Simulated assay, not measured.
Amino acid sequence: MTSGWRSARHQRRLFDRAVAQYGSREAASRWVLPPDDSAHVRGQAVDVGPAEGMAWLEERGAAYGLCRRYANEPWHFEPLTEPGGTCPALEPYSVPSGGPG
């Protein structure tokens, strides 16, 4: 695991940095959500690395209820099913609860 729970303050710094990097809130939100929308802030997400760890969890995570959520983030997993269940289809990228922007 490379990241798990994050404080709202830390998530805000990550989001603000992404806005500066990508040029807009909408573009940044495809990679980092603002604190009010982040599963990391709610304690409901983990980031995994290296690539072998990501592949292992993607293959076996549903047995533990953990699923990869976003197509553009192979490292990001959330509890999206019951242990032993089936993971939902990947979303292309994250979107804040209020929609883009």
Rank of each mutant, 00 (worst) to 15 (best):
L14N: 11
L14E: 14
L14G: 04
F15C: 08
F15H: 10
V19G: 12
A20Q: 15
G23W: 07
E26G: 13
E26K: 08
A27L: 13
A27N: 09
A28M: 09
W31L: 11
V32I: 15
V32P: 10
P34W: 05
D36N: 12
D36A: 14
D37P: 03
S38W: 08
A39W: 11
A39T: 00
H40G: 04
H40K: 05
V41W: 01
V41H: 01
V41F: 03
V41Y: 01
G43P: 04
D47C: 10
D47I: 03
V48P: 02
V48Q: 03
G49W: 11
G49I: 01
G49E: 15
P50R: 06
P50V: 04
E52V: 01
G53S: 10
G53A: 09
M54H: 03
M54S: 09
A55H: 13
A55K: 12
E59D: 15
E59I: 00
E59T: 11
E59C: 06
E59G: 11
R60S: 12
A62T: 02
A63V: 03
Y64L: 15
G65Q: 07
L66K: 03
L66W: 15
C67F: 07
C67G: 07
N72V: 02
W75L: 06
H76P: 11
H76N: 10
H76S: 14
F77E: 08
